[in-house]
Every structure is written in C-alpha cells, then in structure tokens.
Amino acid sequence: MESLGDLLKAMPGGRNVREQADRLMAELLEDPLVGRLRGKYPELDDATIRLNLNRVYQCAKEYRNCSNCPGLDQCPNDFEGHYTELTVETLGELVQLNDRKVPCKKLTARQSETRIRSRIRSFYIDERALSQGYSADEIVKKDLERVKAVGQIVNYIDRTKEKGLQAEGLYLTGSFGTGKTFLMCYMLHELAKTGHTGAIVYMPEFVEDMKALMFEQGKLKETMDILKDTDLLVFDDIGAENLNPWVRDHVLGSILNYRMNRKPTFYTSNYGLDEIEQHFSFTNKDGDDLHKGQRLMDRIRPYVQPVHVTGQNKRGR
C-alpha cells in the first residue's frame, strides 16, 4: 500500500508539500470514517488530526480496502488480514491519537477454522473431506432420502454439546457412496468447534499399516495411544479390511477395550452389526473363530446407536 509520503510526491505540484498536505487534510476531514471517529471522540480536533495525518490516512485507506475486500489471499493492506484501528486518549490537556493493527473477520474465521482442524487427526482419509465447509441444511438438501440419518447425527451433536461426551457412539450403515464418511467428518468438525479432539481412520489401509508395524513397537504404541485417547474416534469403512488375528485381537480389541465406558467410538460400514460380527469371526489365517468375533462385538454393539444411511451413490458426481 502506498505511503503518505509517496502520495504527496505523486500529487500535482509535488514540490509544495505543505499545500498538498493541506489538500489531503481537507479530504480526510470530509471522509465518513473520520466523521465517525470524531463523533466517538469529540475531543479529536483538527490540530491532532494534522499531527497524525499519516495514521489517519492509513486508517482511511485500509478501511476502503476492507470495504471492497478482494479476499484474504489478495489483501492489499500492509499487514495481511489486519486493518488499522484508531483510538483517542486524553492526558490532561493533551489529546493523543493511538493506532493498532486489528485482525479482520476473514482472518479471525480462518484462524478459528485452523484451530478446529488441528483438533482432528485423519489416518488415510482424503483431507478434502475435513477441510471443506459444512452446512446442516446443505447436507440435507444434497439427498432428501437421508433426512432421518442426518437428523440422528444432528441430534447426537446437539446432545454432546449440551451434556458432554456420550457413553455411546454411532454405527452408520448403508450402501456405497451414500455419504457415511462425509457425515462423520461433519460430526467431527462440529464437535471440534466446542474443543473436542477427534480422529478418523480408513480401516483397509490402517489394518495393513498395523501389520507392518507389528515389530516396531514404538510407532505402534504411539498410534494406538492417539486412537485410545482422542475424544471422538471414527473407524471408517469397517468390514472392508483384510483382518488377521493379531490386528483384530491386539490392536482393534485393545483400542476398543480401552475406550468402552470412557469415550465414544463411531463406525461406518456397508455391513450391519450381525454381518460385521461374521466378518470379525473369520481371518485368512485361522478361518472361523466365532468366539473371537463375538468378543470384539461385545465391545462394539452395546456402545453404539445404529444409523441407517439411505440415498443415492454420490461418488463420481
């Protein structure tokens, strides 16, 4: 942004700086912003304005920029996302004009959104699912067939905001592409606004990584501790993974055993609860083991509210 000195030099007859300053002073006194400032601080006289001409010019210039904001990334102000705010202080007979940089609403909103996202960890999930904005109305309008499911999730969010973390989570089931992952990201985003931490894990890739970390106990423990301790944990697309007994019993079982009665866990799946129990009962190594599958389900079924998500397949649209 141009300085006051540059402006005076660029004005016609720039050699007479005093005359140019007088002209600029007259323009600023007619500026509505300066009028509002003097209305708020009646003690602000012409002499004080002239003495602080650079500050007043800066404030007026930045105010006009903000009134025609081109967006935060193209902010023309000296300090991106900030504008100059003027205040007046009277010390005896001395009237003093003070200025400070204030973050604009767009910057404040961006910083707030960054803080919200920092509370959510994603493992193998497309970051776009967490970074885009969310609107409950838009979520409903995208597919009226899933209104009931959206209502259940919104009620869960409201209940958590009012009463704190719930004892049970949600188990979202439904066909491919109905938006189950998107709805869970929406829930994490909304509850992150109130300070809750969250993590979402894409199960097929998570399971393969856990197999690879079997002999790297430090990294394995670090990952498991994150998933145990986060306020809200989502296992996405559960049932699509290729389980082995070790991941089922020592990783997934350990995480769920720690979280039950402590913090809620959420799931999305193309399978219902009965079908997912059958899935847990079979591994490529041991074949059928109904007892192990049932044992894991004892850490899931009592701690979730089933939500059936209906609607059209939205992938590729």
Results as ranks from 00 to 15, higher is better:
residue 244 N to Y: 05
residue 129 A to D: 14
residue 61 K to Y: 05
residue 23 R to Q: 14
residue 257 N to E: 15
residue 116 I to G: 11
residue 109 A to S: 08
residue 249 D to R: 09
residue 216 E to Q: 12
residue 129 A to T: 07
residue 303 Y to M: 01
residue 166 Q to A: 13
residue 83 Y to H: 07
residue 80 E to G: 14
residue 44 L to P: 02
residue 148 K to L: 00
residue 154 V to S: 08
residue 167 A to H: 06
residue 286 D to Y: 11
residue 210 M to Q: 07
residue 88 V to C: 01
residue 157 I to F: 08
residue 27 E to Q: 11
residue 294 Q to C: 04
residue 11 M to Y: 11
residue 237 D to R: 09
residue 115 R to E: 10
residue 302 P to M: 08
residue 87 T to G: 00
residue 292 K to G: 03
residue 255 I to T: 08
residue 243 L to I: 06
residue 242 N to L: 11
residue 246 W to T: 05
residue 235 F to M: 05
residue 257 N to F: 12
residue 12 P to E: 14
residue 77 N to G: 04
residue 245 P to E: 11
residue 266 F to S: 00
residue 119 R to Y: 03
residue 61 K to L: 13
residue 91 L to D: 13
residue 138 E to A: 10
residue 182 F to I: 05
residue 183 L to W: 07
residue 21 A to Q: 12
residue 82 H to K: 05
residue 39 G to S: 01
residue 156 Y to D: 01
residue 64 R to F: 01
residue 218 G to Y: 15
residue 277 E to K: 12
residue 210 M to E: 04
residue 205 E to P: 00
residue 294 Q to K: 10
residue 66 C to K: 04
residue 161 K to H: 10
residue 90 T to Y: 04
residue 280 F to R: 05
residue 56 V to M: 00
residue 221 K to M: 12
residue 213 L to N: 07
residue 11 M to V: 00
residue 131 S to C: 08
residue 137 D to S: 13
residue 125 I to Y: 00
residue 64 R to H: 06
residue 26 A to Q: 13
residue 249 D to W: 11
residue 209 D to Y: 11
residue 215 F to C: 04
residue 4 L to Q: 02
residue 201 V to W: 04
residue 272 G to M: 04
residue 138 E to C: 03
residue 29 L to G: 10
residue 81 G to S: 05
residue 113 E to C: 06
residue 249 D to K: 08
residue 275 E to N: 06
residue 176 F to C: 11
residue 190 E to H: 13
residue 32 P to E: 02
residue 185 C to L: 13
residue 193 K to M: 08
residue 107 L to R: 11
residue 144 L to R: 13
residue 177 G to K: 00
residue 313 N to Y: 12
residue 80 E to S: 14
residue 110 R to W: 01
residue 57 Y to Q: 02
residue 280 F to H: 02
residue 249 D to N: 14
residue 194 T to I: 05
residue 161 K to Q: 15
residue 304 V to G: 04
residue 11 M to Q: 09
residue 158 D to N: 15
residue 133 G to Y: 12
residue 178 T to G: 09
residue 253 G to I: 03
residue 298 D to A: 08
residue 69 C to N: 06
residue 245 P to W: 07
residue 11 M to L: 15
residue 161 K to L: 10
residue 18 R to W: 09
residue 74 Q to D: 13
residue 30 E to K: 15
residue 272 G to P: 03
residue 85 E to P: 06
residue 105 K to S: 15
residue 187 M to I: 00
residue 86 L to Y: 07
residue 243 L to A: 05
residue 80 E to V: 15
residue 44 L to G: 04
residue 77 N to K: 02
residue 131 S to F: 10
residue 21 A to K: 10
residue 24 L to D: 03
residue 136 A to M: 09
residue 296 L to F: 04
residue 138 E to G: 04
residue 251 V to Q: 07
residue 13 G to F: 13
residue 189 H to K: 14
residue 245 P to I: 07
residue 7 L to P: 01
residue 223 T to P: 02
residue 310 T to L: 13
residue 115 R to Q: 11
residue 109 A to L: 09
residue 265 T to W: 03
residue 25 M to V: 01
residue 300 I to T: 01
residue 257 N to Y: 15
residue 97 L to H: 00
residue 14 G to V: 02
residue 213 L to D: 06
residue 16 N to I: 00
residue 226 I to Y: 05
residue 201 V to F: 07
residue 156 Y to M: 01
residue 93 E to W: 14
residue 172 L to T: 02
residue 160 T to H: 06
residue 115 R to C: 04
residue 176 F to I: 12
residue 306 P to V: 01
residue 314 K to D: 13
